[in-house]
Every structure is written in structure tokens, then in C-alpha cells.
Design a protein around this nucleic acid. Structure first.
Lengths: 210, 210
DNA sequence: TGTACATCAGTGAACGCGCGTTCACTGATGTAC
DNA sequence: TGTACATCAGTGAACGCGCGTTCACTGATGTAC
């Protein structure tokens, strides 16, 4: 009556789930979540359509899982990028590479978040917005340790963190489908925005480093 | 050999086009452009699927027309809102109502722009981004007339205009599908962001009015 | 260790349906004279 | 003003296809003893 758990079965099921997740991330390269068909996804994942139901009720549920998974890597990376940008607005040049380079999935996670943040699936949209809010709030805490910002009050740091988060997300969103020759300009604009927010190498107290 | 133009035929064709545009705007309430089927759109517009081809090659082309049309009303409204916000960050409270109230189509235009800005149709995405860039650039020019900002240089005003535009778009995007009880908080956050940008009732020279 | 049974991820056939696009057409509107 | 012809937005039938979901099934893995 109780045989649900076992190492091999668990591992195998987890593999299929990962295949489904990756299939959606790949298909999302130039599509949006609510335009994907269940058959397309399972075809890409290498299983039959029927098997999908062993894992998720529908595509929306898979989308929520994807949100969670995407933020597991993207969340901390964005937070870290925010701190670096706050320390030195000039650091923005390396942020795109830093966020996409390390793990090869990062690019597709980023794309998923950007695409579905205002996309056609309400629950996914909401989940993404909530997660971004959390990242901004955590960043606000981190900012207390940044030279030049330690004097501001908590509400002020939260507002600043929100603006930094938005600026970085926009930077990344624009970068991922810009032609290479336009990427320089996008980075420059983001740098100017961060400086205008009074970050980094600004006339505030303390230099750009520490 | 030459009978293409005539008042009645033109007017009738224009009516159908408007019906198609409105159909897409309505369907986009909780969907994204690339998930709509041609048959759905024509059904909603009250014509046969075949008739669609008398007007547009495909849905993407209709999406580009929609972008143009949406910005015809939304563009100037956003620009105006930017100026008002720059004059007084407190004015942000009325911006959502001001932008959605006057013309009943405004809400759906706004939703279209927000949803498809990072959506699944590349050419539409690009068109929307380009239009938003134009609005921000025009706003930058307007900002030269705002008390307290007239001293800044051109590049600085452009950067500021970009940040104001992003802040307002985010405000609107969050407002259009927030529960009513959360809308107050969203407006408050936007107001704080604008003040942090040094706008409105800030310690700059000159009062909020004129 | 060996055997009999239970679990359950994945299969493959089948269903009815909506899809995009084609085609030859209709009939109201417009033009020529 | 009347008539014969041209235009062209919209029609309706037809096509082959991929869709989501159901169902009874298979067979590898796990458990009891």
C-alpha cells in the first residue's frame, strides 16, 4: 500500500520534469507561454503527450514551477548585480555577461521572466512580479552596507532598490534581443540612469570602491 | 481600369479594419498576441476568416498597425503625464485615471503596449520599444521647460526622461491588473520613485507649480 | 536468494474540434458613355 | 437619366493538420515475505 518513494523512480521522474522545463524554456526563445501547445512541449521534451499529465495538471502549473526555478538562479544574481551597480555605476558594463555567463540556463531563465512578467497568463505574471518585489526588498537590505547609502532611511533604500531593479531588468530585457552593435548604447544608457540615481562614482561621500 | 477609390467603399473597409483592431484589443485582455488565432479574431470582429486577408497579410502585420494606432493616443498622453509628474511628483495620483479615463480605448491600448513590449512577436516588440524611445526623447525636450530642470544639460534630461517613462509605464502596467485595494500602494511607490529622481516637490529651485 | 504482487511513469490509439489557407463565387458600389 | 461593364470586400465550402484529453495498456522498479 506504500511504494511511492524510491531513489531510482524519483530520479527518473525528476529527469523528465527537467526535460519538460527545458523544453518550455527553449520554445520560449521567440514565443510566449500561452502560445505553446502541450504537444509541442512534450515533443520537444521527448515524451508522449499523455505523459505530461503524470507531472503537471496543465501548462499554467508548469509555468509556475518555471517561475520558481528561474528565480532560484536569477534572483540572487540580480540582487548581487544590484549591489555591484550601487557600488559603482560603471560596473554595469559587466553585469550582462556576469548574469548570463556562469550557468548556461541563465539566459533562458531571464528571457522567461522578462517575457512573462506582463504576459498572457495571469497567475504566472503575478508570481513573477511577487518574486521581483522580493528581490528588490532584499537588495534594499544589502544597500545599507554600501558606502554613501548607509545614511539614508529604510524607505528611501527600498525606493532606490526598486529603481535599480527596474533599471537592471530593463537593461537585460533590451540586451537579450538587441543586435550586437546596439548593445554598447544600451549599457551606456543603463550606466547613465544608475549615476542619475546617485549611485557609484557619484559626488556622494566615499569613492566607487568600498 | 481605375476604380480603387471611392468614399463609400473606403469608409466600409475602414469600418471592418476598426472592427478587427478592436477584436484583437478585446481578446488581448488576458491573452497575448501570438496565442490568438485568425479565426478567433475574425469571429470577434464579425467577419468570415477569409475576409481577414483583404486587410492584412497575417496577425503580425495587424499587430504592427495596432502598435501605431495605440501610440497615436497613448504616446502624447504618456508624454503629458511625464511633464505633470516632473512638475509635481504628487500629481502621480491622478495619472492613471487621466490616462485611462478620457477615451475608452486607452485602457486596451495601454494593455497591448505593456503586454507586447517584451512579448512573443519580435517585430511588434521592436516597434513598441522604438515608439517608447521616441516618447521618452520628446519628453526630454519638454523637461527643458520645467522649473528646476532647466539648468541640466541635454543628456541629463534624456536620461531623466527615460527613467520617468519607465517609472510611469511600470506604474500603469501594475495598476491595470492589480486588485483595487493594492492600487493605492502602487501609486505611492511610483510617487516615491519620482521624488527620488529629484522631481516635483523636491528641494530643487522653484515650487511645484510653474 | 527467490517468488508473487503492487506501483506508476510512460505508451499508443482514438475522439471530436478548431485551425490557416485555397478557391470560385456573389453582389453592392463605382465608372464610362 | 439609363445601361453595360469593372471592381473588390466579403462569402461559404473544402482541405489536411495539429490540438487536448480519455482510456486501457505495458513493463521496469520496488516491496513483502
Amino acid at each position: 500500500m506504500t511504494t511511492p518513494n524510491s531513489p531510482i523512480r524519483r530520479a527518473s521522474k525528476e529527469l523528465t520534469r527537467q526535460a519538460l522545463v527545458r523544453a518550455v524554456l527553449d520554445l520560449l526563445a521567440d514565443r510566449s507561454l500561452d502560445s505553446l501547445s502541450l504537444r509541442e512541449i512534450t515533443r520537444e521534451a521527448g515524451i508522449t503527450p499523455t505523459a505530461f499529465y503524470r507531472h503537471y495538471r496543465d501548462i499554467e502549473e508548469l509555468g509556475l514551477i518555471l517561475t520558481e526555478e528561474s528565480f532560484r538562479s536569477f534572483g540572487p544574481a540580480l540582487r548581487e548585480a544590484g549591489v555591484r551597480a550601487a557600488r559603482s555605476a560603471g560596473a554595469v558594463e559587466g553585469i550582462f555577461d556576469a548574469m548570463v555567463g556562469p550557468r548556461s540556463d541563465s539566459l533562458s531563465h531571464l528571457r522567461f521572466i522578462v517575457r512573462e512578467r506582463d504576459g498572457g497568463v495571469r497567475r504566472v505574471r503575478r508570481a513573477i512580479r511577487r518574486e521581483l518585489q522580493l528581490v528588490a526588498d532584499e537588495l534594499a537590505v544589502d544597500l545599507a552596507d554600501v558606502a554613501g547609502l548607509d545614511g539614508r532611511d529604510r524607505e528611501d533604500r527600498r525606493t532606490l532598490a526598486g529603481l535599480v531593479t527596474e533599471t537592471l531588468v530593463r537593461l537585460l530585457a533590451d540586451m537579450i534581443d538587441a543586435e550586437p552593435e546596439r548593445q554598447g548604447e544600451i549599457v551606456t544608457v543603463a550606466g547613465r540612469r544608475l549615476r542619475l540615481l546617485g549611485l557609484g562614482d557619484a559626488p556622494a561621500a566615499g569613492g566607487p570602491h568600498s
